[in-house]
Design a binder for these strands. Sequence first.
RNA 1: GUGGGUAUAGCGUAGCUGGUUAACGCGUCAGUUUGUGGCACUGAAGACCAUCGGUUCGAAUCCGAUUACCCACCCCA
Length: 433
Amino acid sequence: MSNMIKKVNGVKDVLPSEVYKWHTVERVAARTAEVYGFGELRIPTFENTQLFVRSVGETTDVVQKEMFTVTGRNSSYTLRPEGTAGAMRAVLENGMLQSDPLPLKLFYTISCFRNERVQAGRLKEFHQFGAEMVGSASPAADAQMISLADNIIRRLGLKDIELHINSIGCPKCRSEYYKGLRTFFEPHKDELCDTCRERLEKNPMRLLDCKSEICREIGKDAPLAIDHLCSECAEHFEKLKGYLDKMGIKYMIDPKIVRGLDYYTRTVFEFITTSIGAQGTVCGGGRYDGLLEEMGGAPTPALGFAMGLERIIMTMENQGCEFMHTPSCDIYIGTMGDAAKERALILTESLRSEGYHAECDLMDRGVRAQMKYADKLGAAFSVIIGDNEINTGKAVLKNMMSGEQTELLIDDTFSEKFGDIHTAHMFELESLG
RNA sequence: GUGGGUAUAGCGUAGCUGGUUAACGCGUCAGUUUGUGGCACUGAAGACCAUCGGUUCGAAUCCGAUUACCCACCCCA
């Protein structure tokens, strides 16, 4: 073991015994998104480094110190640290804004890569379900995006998730706001923590997000972005709140939400849970009206969100939410002797071609051991075939739960007969609840 | 990048202030009479006690370094 090559720090294996949890989340999310009119987009795992530098922002932590980048042949590629940049690149490159009816509605399930220190709910390779809507500047679009995320979260059975919303304005109102922030913090410059002193120059809005007690104390009465919105942004936010109210989606206004990716404008939101530790943001997103233009496209309003699948699953586990279970074995065919083995092989094949999960012995076990195996598989039915059964052409089908036994012919009619009994059994199970 | 904690079979753990073949539970495999599971019982396989170095007659046990993991800061999903 000591000389075995192990996996890299900060990544995870999902074993067959756990994968049903992922299927649950992925399927519910995709199905819900489809109901909202979103189509699945599949994008490459890596892109040109410049794509992320330009879109996510040169000064962000993600770009500055968390990207996995490889260089070769005069090119620099980066494993995607998030999905929006790649999705928008695909939108522009494929001319979707010209060819498809607006708004574009896209979703994707991807893994992302960020070279960070690992922690509960934070991995170097993590998975996101993302959704993006391109072309609409309407606050109704914001409301629908939030509704989609909210719906997925609710359909997964998650409880006690808070929706925090905020507006960080557009470049127009922001330049004014930055001035205000700088003049507010300037007198306290020496008291601020090192990173905040830098932030004052680079991105003063981040000061509000600092967890240091001193900075928080100083920033207590700092001007807030929502209080400095231009009239258009203010109206947009008011309308969004009105829509959310009418849709019955509860939210709280959290003026402290500052997204760490530079492309965000106007509406930003987070769904937060307290049940999985410090990394409680289970879903985050917002508007990025300037991004497509920044990437070389026509000015086009857009917005989106991403859900962290690991965090969603963790929260579900924590709250005892139900997952869809993968169906277990329908029938186990036990055998004694070579003739029976051949017959079992044929029966298994024909059962499988009818869509049943059938299993037979591949380990040369004794009958008793085979039955134990069948039990471990959770087989609903079993049948044992030996010389007697081969000679008479009949075998006994056993219901593993009730012990009920039925005699069946082990010929071409077996699959069909089994099908009848199996559906009756499933019906019975369902009526029992 | 910064801080704290942990490191024993596939998993979860025990191993007292250093002393002969490292223990237990779960899981795996095989049996408990001849052809039938769930319970119970018996047995087996499986660990150079993370790695390297040091102290010692002797180290899983003490010390140091490295690595990994966990948690938090930061950041984000």
